[in-house]
């Protein structure tokens, strides 16, 4: 009966699934980082990754299927879709970043104001945030575009203001959490004045996680901007903006699926990879 030999593997008590990691970064996040890096290169110096001219037409090669000459195929005017996607990255990222800046900036003013100001202000601003929150982002953006007209500038403003309510709520929640943290009480007990506590202790701790919110926001904003462009409310047709390209191809879906598929894929992948990166940063900072 008695065994004297250790059988270490005889009792399995580990219920955790295995995860693949590269240098301590989960595999999915590494892929997302690689894609984001590609986007960044495309936005800053598109010539490095695509050598053609995004506007050069070639009627003879119209509707070429993806192949050796055109890896993503060509559209109805014979323009190379891969080249156009690469050159469109700049616009998409610009719209995403600028709209997020407006959204987070507005959210910062409303959210911080509401959380840190006297209760009466919070009551008013808090209700305002809630009212804004009732309207879907797209609806607010559509209303703004109908006032401002179409084009890239109005698109940025519309998407930016459309997301203000979202970020204002997140920032308000973060600010409230920090405000009631014990380290804020400790900072007061050290002898700081109320203003010093606000500027030196509360503000830096509220602002830090906003970078994470912003990363998540850029992916979202790209999605919104593409949707509006698809509806013809953003960049005008010859522009290689992804949403516009998606709309271009929708009449030819039966014969040339690639015209819409690849821009659509890039919109999805950009939003996805930025969201994955954002989530990863979020876990890193919150899990500490």
């Amino acid at each position: 009966m008695t065994q004297t030999q250790y059988s270490l593997s005889s009792v399995r008590q580990d219920l955790r699934p295995r995860r693949v990691r590269l240098w301590g970064i989960p595999f999915g996040v590494a892929l997302a980082l690689a894609f984001a890096l590609f986007l960044l290169v495309a936005a800053v110096a598109p010539q490095i990754v695509a050598w053609g001219d995004p506007f050069a037409t070639d009627p003879a090669a119209a509707f070429s299927a993806p192949g050796a000459a055109h890896i993503f195929g060509t559209d109805h005017a014979g323009r190379d879709i891969y080249t156009r996607i690469v050159f469109g990255a700049q616009q998409s990222l610009l719209i995403g970043v600028a709209a997020t800046a407006i959204g987070v900036g507005g959210g910062l003013i409303l959210g911080l104001g509401s959380a840190l100001a006297p209760r009466a202000v919070d009551l008013v601003v808090g209700r305002l945030i809630e009212v804004l929150f009732v309207f879907p982002t797209v609806l607010i953006a559509l209303i703004l575009i109908s006032i401002l007209g179409s084009g890239i500038g109005p698109l940025i403003v519309a998407v930016g203001l459309g997301t203000v309510a979202d970020s204002a709520r997140l920032i308000r929640a973060q600010a409230l959490k920090v405000k009631h943290g014990e380290f804020v009480a400790a900072s007061r007990a050290l002898g700081r004045s109320s203003t010093a506590v606000l500027l030196q202790t509360i503000a830096p701790n509220v602002i830090r996680p906003i970078f994470v919110i912003a990363t998540l926001g850029v992916g979202q904003a790209i999605l919104w901007a593409s949707s509006l462009s698809f509806l013809g409310l953003g960049a005008a047709p010859p522009s290689p903006e992804w949403g516009t390209m998606l709309a271009d191809g929708r009449n030819y879906l039966q014969v040339a699926w690639w015209i819409s598929l690849f821009p659509g894929l890039f919109i999805t992948l950009s939003a996805l990879s930025l969201t994955i990166i954002g989530r990863f940063l979020q876990q890193r900072t919150e899990g500490r």
Binding site: T2, T4, Y6, L8, S9, S10, V11, Q13, D14, R16
Partner: peptide, 18 residues
């Protein structure tokens, strides 16, 4: 917790008698 097979994540449990 080894007595109920829940020693935890990544645990390897061995014994002469359990």
């Amino acid at each position: 917790r080894s007595l109920i097979g829940l020693a935890g994540q990544g645990a390897r449990v061995g014994a002469e008698r359990l």
